[in-house]
Design a protein around this nucleic acid. Sequence first.
DNA 1: ATTTAATGATAGTATTACTATCATGCCAAA
DNA 2: TTTGGCATGATAGTAATACTATCATTAAAT
Lengths: 224, 224
Amino acid sequence: MVVGIRFQLNESLFNKDPQDTELGRKILEQSIILINELGIESFNFKKLAAKIESTEASIYRYFDNKHMLLLFLTSWYWEWVEYLIDLNTKNLNNPKDQLKVAIHNIVNASTENPLTSYINENLLHQIIIKESSKVYHTTSVDIENKNGLFLSFKDLVSKVAKIIEGVNPKFPYKRSLASNIFEMSNNQIYFSQHLPRLTDIKHCDKSKIDLEEMISYFVFKILK
Amino acid sequence: MVVGIRFQLNESLFNKDPQDTELGRKILEQSIILINELGIESFNFKKLAAKIESTEASIYRYFDNKHMLLLFLTSWYWEWVEYLIDLNTKNLNNPKDQLKVAIHNIVNASTENPLTSYINENLLHQIIIKESSKVYHTTSVDIENKNGLFLSFKDLVSKVAKIIEGVNPKFPYKRSLASNIFEMSNNQIYFSQHLPRLTDIKHCDKSKIDLEEMISYFVFKILK
DNA sequence: ATTTAATGATAGTATTACTATCATGCCAAA
DNA sequence: TTTGGCATGATAGTAATACTATCATTAAAT
């Protein structure tokens, strides 16, 4: 069966790779819908089991807990963004163009043609915006980092930092600027939706266009 | 009894203002210590009750749940930062100097002389860095925002946006830049402590000095 | 035809996040 | 000095959560 692209994620993220089985893919598909509906706090495996007409026990065979499931989803998302950046910069030689494309893909990943039938990239992007920072703001961050659970995100930030280096080799804050692009991309959209006094981005059809323009403006001014 | 400064916070944050009573102040004092120790996820009112040798029921008389307590603590912190910015900019006429002072206070608030006997500002800053974004990344954000629960933070961001306007009246992204200063300040310190590949700030004695320098560099380059 | 792996069905347990009720003790007005 | 009221403490109870364990069933692989 054709189910689309498949990413090789760190094995500590799951007990059994959900991309490999029908039930696993159903868990991913429906958890994205349910986490969006309920928020990660009210979401639990009992509700998910009911939704997919399976059992809690079966879900636990894939993920130890909902934190791991969220970590899996965010890792999948960052792998996907990295894939898009690779794809769309491979024919570009000018670092400035590469950086523009990277920013475009970070902001607009979810509007690309979907690659994977059981992942709703738009809903997943909403989860990233609202919940992704919770995956590393935990007491277990150091152990999990040691076990490589944040590698997808760290590699992606490193990739963007490298492109920044191409634009301005003397710039001393490439990692911070790179990670800040991601934070800004998530937060400013969230603020436009829920706390509009905290942003200049208006909540409307063209929010992402405005956001991309703003981030480009910031980044290229800083790198000048 | 002298207990230091007292902020008038939105009444919906609590059932009974903890700043008014001995037990209330003990709740604030010890919750800051315990949230730091355990993280907000493992922290609960039962453990706090044990620590202050009181009961769960008594704590519930002040706060509906730990989310409200955290919201109270973060609001207190932002009120305090605003107080510091007001205090230290009131004799400055040059907007650039005002902005420098604002950035300094945002990054270094916790190193100021403590004003309130029962609040450990250093520990509270650590809570802000690690937990504060969780207070608005919830399903109830819109209702709580409507009830004014985020006013302290929104007013503070507006204040910084106003100073930015003074520096460059034509700059079109003052709110986004202002909120981003806060996000960057929290995240980059957190990354330096836990995910060093995501930042150029080294985790050391002078992290905050470096961070202040970096944020100033970013901000003034953007505003040029 | 038999083994094996995946899933389902069911039950149980410790902890969490409260809510309710009543007792106690202290301060302050009458 | 008594009385009333308010803050806190003590205790109990409940529904939901986050698992863990066990055994049965089914489907695919050899």
